[in-house]
Write a protein that binds this DNA or RNA. Structure first.
Lengths: 234, 234
DNA sequence: GACGTAATTAACTGATTGGTACAAAATTCG
DNA sequence: CGAATTTTGTACCAATCAGTTAATTACGTC
């Protein structure tokens, strides 16, 4: 004990000339943690590894974030914040409803592609049954307006007599999200099983364009009678 | 050492009257491991926990499967085997192309819903960048014919002049998979953010029916000229 | 300048983990 | 039947892990 104290005195000696930067340190930890959790998941990521990749020490992770799970929860919030912030830049009000819907679907597809770490964090969160998301008021807040753009488009589309009366912004959002998310989330397995042609530039454009076509088809009023008992738009 | 040997002799004494069942033990381990890996992921699952839930000892896990990762790899194969086996039961050849496509899309959506553990294992495998799937010849074999049914439908649809000439079975498969998979994989986060209305019986039916409608719309030849510069099926 | 608090580093800790060593019972084969 | 092999269980092990302790430096206030 007294020997350990002596050793401590020796080892700690000599560190001086530094400035406190609480905000910077927290930010650095969060950034590194985001990468590590996205790469390895909550269970797989290692605090020592995260600490080693920051400009600070493991102690500060516990000082600022409490424990591993709370750090992960903060990373989850930060991931949502970054992505939702990126979505604000999309301007649709000046476009006619059909154009606006297409633009939104295209943007969403590409936006997901641009944020693989966000996709992975959400994948990991789903593996953990959304338990950490459940505890976050911030994520709820960040997502509160997530489908308002779609709602506005649907209102306008219906008012113009172009969209179905029963079109559901929630479902449209779901379908757009499904394809946009899956495109990133399952690329590893899908491409290994079925080849990587869909993950080329042409393949991605095709997927995106067809998603747009399908979503618009879902939103628009039908113009034909059913054909052969099917309800296909034909 | 000699004391440990004595203790070993004492502890091991008294266990007799058992029959060897190598196949049964392996099967039991695989079943338990599937549940544990699906629940906790590769990193999060614990060998001791898996062993405790089997009818055997941890030693047998290593005896039969070598190590944790190889066990996981076998679980992955087994998951694919079960799901692909389930898909064989679908008979489509007697149906007209449009009906067959609809039936396939519906079946796929429901089939995914019925196998949450498979979905979770694939999610986990994607977190691990498909690295374990990459090492499996069996999975490749199991998936070799995964889109043959779709290919046959598209051939028939094109021959009947109903489907687009450039319809891609691969893309159709992708779109059907995207929605079917996302429906299970992201339920935890989606429902926490947007509510659970889409995960009721009515909501699921709506999602499935709209998926069918969209996919059929993608496959069918268009019957109209573009409208207002859009390429929507209108 | 003294004091109290915040921020920071390095070393330490007990528990857990995947895997191994040893031994015993069951089974097979010549 | 005996020897070799397979199957099985228990106890053990070194490394890793998330988290903690002790100490030092920086900073703000009086």
């Amino acid at each position: 004990m007294s020997e350990a104290m002596v050793l401590n005195e020796k080892a700690a000696g000599g560190r001086s000339g530094w400035k406190q930067d609480p905000a910077g340190v927290q930010k650095n930890i969060l950034a590194v943690a985001m990468t590590e959790f996205a790469a390895n998941g909550l269970s797989g990521a290692r605090i020592d590894e995260i600490a080693a990749k920051t400009h600070t020490s493991k102690r500060m992770i516990y000082y600022y974030f409490g424990d591993k799970e709370r750090l992960y929860g903060r990373v989850l919030e930060e991931a949502y914040r970054q992505v939702r912030t990126g979505e604000q830049e999309l301007e649709l009000d000046h476009l006619p409803p059909i154009e606006a819907l297409k633009r939104l679907a295209e943007f969403t597809f590409d936006h997901h592609s641009r944020h693989p770490d966000f996709i992975r964090i959400v994948m990991i969160e789903n593996i953990h049954h959304g338990a950490y998301l459940e505890q976050s008021d911030l994520i709820r807040l960040l997502n509160a307006g997530a489908i308002q753009k779609l709602e506005a488009i649907c209102r306008r589309g219906r008012a113009d007599g172009l969209f179905r009366e029963d079109v559901s912004p929630l479902e449209l959002h779901w379908h757009i999200s499904a394809s946009s998310f899956f495109n990133v989330s399952n690329r590893a397995t899908f491409s290994r099983i079925f080849g990587s042609s869909l993950y080329t530039e042409d393949g991605q454009r095709s997927l995106r364009d067809h998603l747009v076509e399908m979503v618009v088809g879902l939103a628009l009023k039908r113009r034909e009678h059913p054909r052969r008992g099917t309800r296909g738009p034909a």
